[in-house]
Structures are given as C-alpha cells and as structure tokens.
C-alpha cells in the first residue's frame, strides 16, 4: 500500500527534522516517537501484499514500539530531572 509507505517515509523525515532542530526537549521526544512510528509504518506498509500483511514486520514493530516507549520514558525522566535541577528546558545554549 504505497500511500502508507510514502507517508511513513515522510514521517521519518519530519521526525528527523524535529529530533535535530527541536528546541524544547519534550518536542524532540515527540519527534523521536513520530520518526519511530514513521519507520514502523514504512516497514509495515511495504510488508502488505494482496490483503495479507506479513507477520514478521508486525512482530518487529510491536517490539519497536515497546523499545521506543522505554526510550521516551527515560528521556522524559531525564528532561524532568534536568528541568527541576537547572530549570532549563533545552540543551541549545551550552556547548554542543
């Protein structure tokens, strides 16, 4: 189903942009999730064939979603801790 695959590809690019160019950290976490789901959508859509979806990508995607959640949870924990410790919401100003 190429429309979904193309959407997945565009989501990956959009997420990549947000992940790199995002200023607020929470926004970068959102971008990370969007990029991840974009990759999964692309993988899933390309696995769709005449009405039957290939189960292997589905299993990979479920694993991927759970891994993405763990990544986001750790990121959110760090962001909240950083904001509480230093009151800063982004990494932009210091070196880097």
């Amino acid at each position: 189903m190429t429309p979904f695959a193309v959407t997945g590809a565009l989501l990956v690019a959009l997420g990549l942009y947000g992940l790199i160019a995002g200023r607020a950290l929470l926004r970068r976490i959102i971008a990370f999730n969007v990029m991840g789901s974009g990759v999964f959508l692309m993988l899933g859509a390309l696995g769709w064939h005449e009405g039957r979806a290939d189960p292997v990508p589905q299993a990979l995607i479920i694993t991927g979603i759970v891994v993405a959640l763990s990544g986001s949870a750790l990121a959110v924990g760090l962001v909240v801790a950083l904001a509480r410790a230093t009151g800063r919401q982004h990494l932009r100003d210091d070196v880097g």
Binding site: V6, A9, V12, A13, G47, H49, D54, P55
Partner: peptide, 25 residues
Amino acid sequence: AVAASVVAALLVGAAIKITPGTGLE
C-alpha cells in the same frame, strides 16, 4: 530542514521503487 527533505526524497524514492513481496509470510 533541507537535510531532512533530502532524506525524505531518498526514502520516498526507495518506498516507491520497492514492490512489496510476500516477505517471510
């Protein structure tokens, strides 16, 4: 944004070119 759009172009190009097969189904 430009870099991301390059990645977008590459990915969309690839996504279109790939004809979905049966995979390991």
